[in-house]
C-alpha cells in the first residue's frame, strides 16, 4: 500500500488498518515532503508497525530517511539510483535483509542490468487510474510479458481493485500495489483484507466466487455486507445471515466444529437461530492432532 503526503493526517490510522488487513508492505511516498517531515512520518509508521512484524515499511527514494527511521527498505523510482547499486545500498543500510525494490514502466526497464540484484520490481500502470489520466494503461498483456522477462518478483500497480487483482496475479504478478483501493475505502482494513483474500485465492489458482450471492448481485451486496471477525479475520456476510449460513458459505460441516459467538459457545442445534451483526466476534474451532 502506498501512502502520499495527502494521507499524512491519517497516517497512523491507515498504517494500522493496512497491517491489520494483511498488507505486506507500507510504501511511504510523499514525494515533495521535506526530510524533516518524512523522517518524522516514517518513524511514527515504524512505531506502529513494530506491533505488526509481518508488514514491512518501505520509504520512497530517500535512502537516508529509510535508514534514519529504521524502515525495512527503500523503494526506488525508475529515475532514482540504478539497480546496479542495490548491494551498495544494502551496505549503507547496514541491516540484514534490507529490502531494495524499484518501479519500472516498460519491458525494457525490466531487463536493465542490476535488476536481478533487487528484491522486487513494480510494473505499471496496468489498469486505468485517475492518477495517470491521459496516459494509456499498459494492460495485462504487457504485464504478462514483463513478468516473464523479470528475474525477480514483479508486482502490478495502477488501477488495482478487488475485481481485477486476480487478473494481475494470473498474468504473472507476484502481488499488487494499491493506494486508492485502501485509502479511499470506508473501512481501509476491510478493503485491505478483501484484496489480500483475492490475491491469496488467485495464488492458490482458485477463482474467488462470491460465496453469498451471484456475480450480478455482488456490487450491491458488497455495499450492504456486514463485517464480522471470524477467528480474528475480517469476513463479509450478507445482512440477515445466521451462524449456520456462515458455516455453509465456507463449506464447514457443523458437526466437525464448535462455534462461539461473542465468546458464548453456541450449541449445534442453535446455529441457525443466531443472526450475525456488524462487528460480531465468531470463533470456529475444530479438532486437530495433539498430544
Amino acid at each position: 500500500m502506498i501512502l502520499d503526503g495527502s494521507e499524512m493526517p491519517r497516517l497512523l490510522e491507515l498504517v494500522r488498518a493496512a497491517a491489520q488487513g494483511g498488507v505486506d508492505a507500507v510504501h511511504l511516498r510523499a514525494r515533495d515532503a521535506p526530510a524533516s517531515l518524512l523522517v518524522e512520518w516514517a518513524t511514527a509508521a515504524r512505531q506502529v508497525l513494530n506491533q505488526y512484524p509481518r508488514t514491512l515499511l518501505l520509504v520512497n527514494d530517500r535512502l537516508d530517511v529509510a535508514i534514519l527511521s529504521g524502515a525495512d527498505g527503500v523503494h526506488l523510482p525508475e529515475r532514482s539510483f540504478p539497480p546496479t547499486l542495490a548491494d551498495e545500498i544494502r551496505g549503507l543500510a547496514g541491516r540484514e535483509g534490507f529490502v531494495v525494490g524499484r518501479s519500472v514502466h516498460s519491458a525494457d526497464a525490466v531487463a536493465e542490468p542490476g535488476t536481478e540484484e533487487l528484491d522486487y520490481i513494480v510494473f505499471g500502470h496496468v489498469f486505468a487510474t485517475p492518477s495517470k489520466q491521459g496516459m494509456a494503461p499498459r494492460g495485462v498483456e504487457a504485464l504478462a510479458r514483463a513478468a516473464r522477462a523479470s528475474s525477480v518478483p514483479m508486482l502490478a500497480i495502477g488501477g488495482i481493485s478487488p475485481e481485477n487483482a486476480a487478473q494481475a496475479i494470473r498474468a504473472g504478478a507476484a502481488g499488487v500495489v494499491v493506494k486508492r483501493a485502501i485509502v479511499e475505502a470506508q473501512d481501509p482494513s476491510a478493503a485491505a483484507w478483501e484484496l489480500r483474500r483475492r490475491v491469496d485465492a488467485a495464488w492458490r489458482g482458485a477463482s474467488v466466487d462470491n460465496r453469498f450471492g451471484n456475480d450480478k448481485q455482488e456490487a450491491e451486496a458488497q455495499e450492504a455486507m456486514l463485517q464480522v471477525s471470524v477467528n480474528g479475520k475480517v469476513i463479509s456476510a450478507p445482512p440477515g445471515a445466521t451462524l449456520r449460513d456462515l458455516l455453509e458459505a465456507h463449506g464447514i460441516d457443523p458437526h466437525q466444529v464448535a462455534v462461539a459467538h461473542n465468546e458464548e459457545i453456541v450449541e449445534k442445534g442453535r446455529l441457525g437461530e443466531i443472526t450475525l451483526r456488524e462487528g460480531d466476534a465468531v470463533e470456529i474451532v475444530r479438532v486437530m492432532a495433539g498430544g
Binding site: R197, N231, H250, V285, R286, M288, G290
Partner: peptide, 16 residues
C-alpha cells in the same frame, strides 16, 4: 487430540 481455530478461508478437506 487438540482443538484449534480453523482457517475459514481454506478449510481442510479431511478431518483427523
Amino acid at each position: 487430540v487438540s482443538v484449534r481455530y480453523m482457517n475459514v478461508e481454506a478449510p481442510e478437506q479431511e478431518s483427523l
